[in-house]
Amino acid sequence: MRFEAPTSLNAAIELLENEAGVVRILAGGTDVLVQLRSGQVEPDLIVDIKRIEAMQTITEEDGGFRIGAAVCGAELGGHAGVCKLWPGVVEAVELIGSTQVQGRATMVGNLCNASPAADSVPAMVAAGATARVTGPEGSRDIPVEKIATGPGQTSLGRAELVESVYLPARGVHSSDAYLRFIPRTEMDIAVVGAGISIEMDGNGICTHARVALGAVGPRVMLVEDAATALIGTSIDEAALEALAQAASSAATPIDDKRGTVDFRIKVAGVLARRAAIIAVQRSRVD
């Protein structure tokens, strides 16, 4: 196994392009190292992107923030601007693993690992985040929900990587929230995850909403019916009930070691409702 730690994006792409064998990109490494150890992957080349300056930074851009692929959770959580703009996304990232894992794990890594249970992804999807995908042919921006195509599978081409994620600006009476269900308080993979972002008008009516669910299907899903249940309402009890119903109906989970089908379907609705309540409260504070 060859290890390279390029200092520029171009050099990284070149390495990817010239390697015929199995390649793994090393950002925080909290998934890759576990896979290496278990023998799940045996890469020929590991490309560590943490020495690429641009990938280590968070930059303000058009009222939103661009977050480099190598920015770890602890750093994101310490960034006042992002915390204020997208508190739900930050809390989702901070739910990934322990304090120790936060010192390494990255949002982009979480995205590209393509687990349906990834905590940060439903929050990013709800926030309308885009991923900047860069490869030999240049860069393109795509919605984050287009990255994962199935468990462990991505739409990234050969020699492509996600350089950064962009969290857009948002309106005044708006906010977001993410909740996940785990049997313990920490150190678990989401059994169900729900990310919600909402925008209210001056009269307290929801004008825009995005609802995303994790761990209830082969990939994180954007649930339009759930958003529809909120839009045009004051997010009252009836709307919350409709939201919960829509979230539960959209869930197509499996039985596994982490939860049952019935449990996940029910809890998808419970969490969507609870996350919506938090998002509404946050939108009022602003």
């Binding site: 290890f3 490494g29 909290t30 943490k50 010192g103 390494r104």
Partner: peptide, 19 residues
Amino acid sequence: CSVMLDGRLVCACLVLGVE
């Protein structure tokens, strides 16, 4: 295996030696 890496708390088992 908790250690500090450039001032951040990490698990040494999730860091490659070459890093």
